[in-house]
């Protein structure tokens, strides 16, 4: 790779690594795996760099590679053999400010926990639309499907997410809803 290409890739990686890792975390629910997925994605982008850097939507190309990398990871035989897809591992949050209150944690936990119960492509559609703020057309390009499929995946994903959050709410509130803290 030419020196100028190396420099432009370095700028790309520095600029997008964090956002790719955040998307990966929303996909998989594990910061360690998210870090691996981000690194794998950037390595793949590097290998294609001389071919793709004329593309104006480099960020979305990175998202496409990330999505495929994650789906491939999920389909690996040893992943398929595990029954841990719905588990949300504990992650340290040493920058979390308790003063932000219980509500933020509540929403954060429930939405992401609910998201992790969705089928992967519905999950991806919601992350791309509501976290990355992509348009329907951009989401379709990243997912490699039609705009109609994006709309249907998003609608089904939202329905499922609402149901999942409601169920999680009921489970968490149920035992303690009537408890009086003294």
């Amino acid at each position: 790779m030419r020196q100028t290409d190396e420099e432009s890739f370095r700028r790309f990686a520095t600029r997008y690594a964090a956002s790719l890792r955040r998307s990966a975390f929303l996909f998989c629910g594990d910061w360690h795996l998210a870090e691996d997925l981000m690194q794998q994605t950037l390595v793949k982008v590097y290998r294609s760099w001389s071919r793709i850097q004329q593309d104006e939507s480099l960020a979305n190309y990175g998202r496409t590679v990330l999505l495929r990398t994650w789906l491939d990871e999920k389909r690996r035989p040893w992943r398929r053999s595990e029954h841990t897809a719905e588990a949300v591992p504990d992650t340290a949050d040493d920058r979390h400010d308790p003063a932000n209150g219980v509500h933020r944690m509540w929403v954060r936990d429930l939405v992401h926990r609910g998201l992790l119960t969705l089928p992967p492509r519905q999950r991806a559609a919601l992350v791309l639309r509501y976290f990355d703020d992509l348009s329907v057309a951009e989401t379709a390009a990243v997912l490699g499907c039609s705009e109609g499929t994006v709309k249907s995946q998003t609608a089904r994903g939202l329905d499922t997410l609402r149901a999942s959050v409601a169920r999680l709410s009921a489970e968490e509130l149920g035992p303690t809803a009537g408890r009086v803290v003294t």
């Binding site: 910061w31 939405v111 976290f131």
Partner: peptide, 18 residues
Amino acid sequence: DVRDGLANAVAGEPPLRL
């Protein structure tokens, strides 16, 4: 709510090691 929930879910991200 979904936007806020997803944004908040990554609020506690660990430092990036790149």
